[in-house]
Design a protein around this nucleic acid. Structure first.
Length: 434
RNA sequence: CGGGGUGUAGCUCAGUAUGGUUAGAGUACCUGGUUUGGGACCAGGGGGCCGAAGGUUCGAGUCCUUUCACCCCGACCA
């Protein structure tokens, strides 16, 4: 993409309502903009990142044997009456009426719809297990949306549901999903922990959350210093006041605290702040019983499906990557999430030699299917550098004053180091880096 | 849902106490010139139903009423 043709409205000004780095940088970098309370538009850069994350989630789930579907976003309220959640979910469910005054709900989650989809279509234990998922818009009319796309009302979520003939098989799938989630978050380049969690209002027994570690996280978790054990503090302290007391502490305060309890492996446990980006549940038969979704077992007897449910906050992940990877100048995208891997920056657009080399390199990288941005705007060096840092391209090739000596520089966004490379070597050097 | 706050140029904000020419600044944008390695400089220019509706007044960004939106703290949050 040529920067002169790209719609990337960056700003120097910090939006007044944004407190978190991810919110500020995503808005300033022209990734997203606010449409209303908890409602955001994804502009070209934001859309690219969102799709990249969606693609990784899809690839890993498909590899694990899951089937992608897409359920209608608007659902009849009768679906929610059957499970009782039209009452229990309260105002979080946005209700609307059509022209016939029939009541509908904008899907906040899809257990009911997914059970209805499988019910009477999967009828035998021989057809089990089956795991269905979708990556689709959700709407939850939160009392107070905040933190940009970290807690929006409308958001993109992957929600998966598995159906089984036995609890054992459901637990097997639960563990498979846990491993699949680890692959996904590893590919995204995130520092994360799988932690024991409360099952909350959705019901069910075993439940684990995946948290991206970040100072600004809303949740407090404890993690083992050596093994991979971790837990949301909601599961550690029985007293709610105690949980609240810890939640109120800042990241700095928390890291100084020590937990009296030791991990079962013998090491000590320490506090961290996390952003919940995934949650997996062993649901059991709560919904399938309520909705009378049965299959025939080996003896021909009807039994409700054992069910598991698995969520990933896809749009929340966009912000989470930045909460974990940024500096005072802007975003630092990870390899798999960067909207463009390489940015070619021509320092002085009036210098023909610079432009020629830039064009040449741009076309050559495009030919190799490298995701490359060519900053061909008539702007000064400092302006373009600040812009590149704000957006967070992993690598920027600076074609500038060193060209006279046959050199260009490669700027590494993460280390912020500039390395001089001979013009003849820049293509191969870039190909090795990415 | 309780408590607090803010709506004025694309953005960040003055101006409102005490009503009074043509509503301001910075930034962004346009034109011309100079500049060209860290968000440049000079000159000129465009851009506003002062959130909306109603009211008081000779006169309302400013006062009154209603309403909408957004933000913050809390409660809530698979």
């Amino acid at each position: 993409m040529r920067r002169s043709r790209a719609f990337i409205p960056t700003t120097k000004e910090v939006p007044s309502d944004a407190t978190l780095p991810s919110h500020q940088f995503l808005v300033r970098g022209g990734f997203i903009n606010q449409q209303g309370a908890g409602l955001y538009n994804f502009m070209p850069l934001g859309k690219i990142v969102l799709e990249k994350i969606r693609k990784i989630v899809k690839e890993e789930l498909d590899k694990a044997g899951c089937n992608e579907v897409q359920l209608s976003f608007v659902t009849p309220i009768s679906l929610w009456d059957k499970s009782g959640r039209s009452d229990t979910m309260g105002k979080e469910m946005l209700r609307i009426q059509d022209r016939h005054q029939n009541d509908f709900v904008l899907s906040p989650t899809n257990e009911e719809a997914m059970v209805e989809l499988v019910k009477n279509r999967v009828t035998s234990y021989k057809d089990l297990p089956v795991n269905l998922y979708q990556i689709n818009t959700k709407f939850r009319d939160e009392a107070r949306p905040r933190y940009g796309i970290l807690r929006g009302r409308e958001f993109l979520m992957k929600d998966g549901y598995s159906f089984h003939s036995s609890k054992e098989d459901m637990i097997r799938e639960f563990n498979l999903m846990q491993e699949t989630y680890k692959k996904i978050f590893t590919r995204l380049g995130l520092d994360f922990r799988v932690v024991d969690a409360d099952s909350g209002a959705i019901g069910g027994t075993g439940s684990k959350e995946i948290h991206v570690l970040a100072n600004s996280g809303e949740d407090t978790i404890v993690v083992c210093d050596t093994c991979d054990y971790g837990a949301n503090i909601e599961t550690i302290f029985e007293d709610e006041a105690q949980v609240d007391a810890y939640n109120e502490k800042s990241y700095e305060e928390l890291t100084k605290l020590e937990l009296e309890q030791k991990c079962s492996c013998g090491s000590s446990l320490s506090f961290k702040k996390g952003i919940e980006v995934g949650h997996i549940f062993q649901l059991g038969t709560t919904y399938t019983s309520a909705l009378e979704a049965n299959f025939s077992d080996e003896n021909g007897k009807p039994k409700p499906f054992e069910m598991g449910t698995y969520g990933i906050g896809v749009s929340r992940l966009v912000a989470s990557v930045i909460e974990q990877n940024h500096d005072e100048n802007g975003c630092i995208w990870t390899k798999e999430t960067a909207p463009y891997t390489v940015n070619i920056m021509v320092s002085n657009i009036k210098d023909e030699a610079q432009v020629t080399l830039g064009e040449e390199l741009y076309l050559k990288l495009l030919g190799e299917n490298v995701e490359v941005m060519f900053d061909d705007r008539k702007e000064r060096f400092g302006f373009k550098m600040k812009d590149a840092e704000l957006i967070g391209f992993p690598y920027t090739v600076i074609i500038g004053k060193e060209l006279a000596n046959g050199l260009v520089q490669i700027y590494d966004r993460k280390t912020t180091e500039k390395t001089s490379v001979k013009t003849g070597d820049v293509f191969s050097t870039i190909m090795e880096l990415i």
